[in-house]
Design a protein around this nucleic acid. Structure first.
Lengths: 310, 310
DNA sequence: GTTGTTGCATAGTCAAATCCTATAGGTCTG
DNA sequence: CAGACCTATAGGATTTGACTATGCAACAAC
């Protein structure tokens, strides 16, 4: 209905006149006066430099040119109409797209969220980009992605605070993770910071916030960590941990989920937050809003579940 | 260029803004003021009940809905543009259609005209309808066909004279036609009206003007014609004449063209005219005009040719 | 943090396009 | 040939579209 107002009046008139075979009849149907149609068709014919209607007979008929032009006009109308319906699809979440940035850590932590989102809104095209947190923040600030999922203190140092808007989902404790064959695979008591310095570590490289966080901790307690492996691939690290006698540091829920053994540190590392970040005051697409809502629901469930098993 | 005026301004603006990523830049390119764009886009968004552009950042970007709608708008624009070009094709005669009505007689007489027309304008769709002359006149009057080719006195009795417009192409003499095996296949002298009454005739049925013309002639000279065959198919009659000892009455050029033997009548039958008929004051499509022009040229050639062989 | 710059939004005015009523000028019908 | 029907034209009212001037927010530089 609204669409009728975007599509040019003159073409709507042409279509109606062709349909009714009469200016008078079409004018009645369109609730406009007959001279309006005369005038509009005249202008249209002048624009196209060709007569479109043959008014010589008892009933108005399309000329050769009119017949051909009408087909195109109908298709064009159909396109605009389809466009309006497609917009409603976007608002219904039956179409659309979501560009999501996350880190290797949040990837592991929230992929079940993404699975439910896809299950709920299968028409929405999801585009995920795995990258260091700093890049996520820049991408969000520059609107290259709709939303980021980060794992850190609310603001990173490199980004001006008010370019970004944050929503905390939940908090995670960091602990040491070892495989089932590691000497400490049975250890239940906490491990001291000093002992951490003895371990052979597999960690993400310094591009990643988690790694920098570990480095800060080591500095604070004057530990010189021993790195067996540095990588930007968390799956590589986890796979390594499972089979070799190395340790790494991960959020507790990833450790559990991957069937690794968790050892708490003493003193504990600063807890970190799983946070959604958006461009401050930026446009949020329907898909982005839906994702955000689902994420909060999912986080609440996740917390309950973690509380039970922790 | 003209097309830019038919396609809605608001959508042209949307396309330009999306292209330049800026209202200001687009306004410069379109030679309008920037507030005009703000206003138009606002209205467009209100019509569609959805934001289309995200103006929160440094550069204007399409929202999810805007991106989708833009695709449709571009296609619609393309359609209208294509329509305008198609109209020019019609005027160029590289497209279009021609609905032609003719009788079995004019079919035989003018099919070479149709062949040249098709050769000259291969893009024009030709639709021919073979029917009795009276039907042609009605069809022309009611614009069901663009042009008729008839073979008769200018006006038939059943149609009001001023509904139809005529253009005579050339005149034809009617004569008796017999096959090569007919007893009179060698006769060079004229045949009297009385002798015609002796012949076994194959003629079109009374739906056709030629047949009624023959009946009138017979009435005038008090002849009771003997009909062996009556048909609405001229090709059937010609085929029959070729192999059986019947006679028929045909325009002289058809007789020659079909390799039949022509015998003149005495007194001669009224000559008849090959005539183009149009709806009076009706719209003539470019194809119709072109056909008319070609027909007159063709008739001039045909006359010269006939003069040589007659 | 303050200031300057850039860019879109808003307000108010004006011209032009659109639509209306009334009427003229055509066909077609009886 | 008169009446009915239909489209075209003319002239006035309304709406739309575009402009200028200005406001406000974001970004950049000092």
């Amino acid at each position: 209905m609204q669409q009728r107002d975007i599509f040019p009046r003159s073409l709507q008139y042409l279509v109606a006149i062709a349909e009714y075979g009469s200016y008078t009849r079409a004018a009645e149907a369109l609730h406009v006066s007959q001279p309006t149609l005369s005038q509009q068709i005249k202008q249209l014919e002048e624009s196209l430099q060709s007569p479109l209607l043959d008014r010589s007979g008892r009933s108005v008929q399309l000329t050769n040119a009119g017949e051909i032009y009408l087909r195109h006009a109908r298709r064009a109308w159909g396109e605009l109409d389809g466009g309006a319906r497609a917009i409603h699809d976007v608002q219904n979440l039956s179409r659309g797209s979501l560009r999501l940035g996350w880190t290797p850590i949040t990837d592991y932590l929230t992929c079940s969220l993404l699975e439910s989102f896809n299950g709920l809104y299968p028409g929405i095209n999801i585009n995920t980009l795995d990258m260091p947190q700093d890049d996520i923040e820049v991408s969000v600030a520059e609107s290259r992605i709709d939303v980021g999922i980060v794992f850190s203190k609310p603001f990173s140092s490199t980004t001006r605070p008010n370019e970004i808007e944050t929503e905390v989902l939940f908090e995670e404790k960091l602990c040491i993770a070892v495989g089932k064959n590691h000497p400490r695979a049975k250890q239940r008591e906490r491990m001291s910071a000093q002992n951490l310095g003895q371990e052979s570590l597999a960690l993400l490289n310094t591009d990643f916030a988690l790694r920098r966080h570990v480095d800060d901790y080591c500095n604070e307690y004057d530990i010189e960590p021993r790195f067996a492996i540095e990588s930007n691939s968390l799956s590589a690290i986890i796979s390594l941990i499972k089979h070799r006698p190395h340790a790494t540091i991960l959020p507790r829920s990833i450790v559990k989920q991957q069937g690794l053994h968790a050892i708490n540190l003493s003193p504990e590392m600063q807890r970190k937050e799983i946070t959604l970040i958006y461009r401050k005051n930026g446009y949020k697409s329907p898909a982005t809003i839906a994702f955000s809502e689902l994420a909060h629901l999912w986080a609440k469930n996740e917390l309950q579940h973690t509380a039970q098993t922790q």
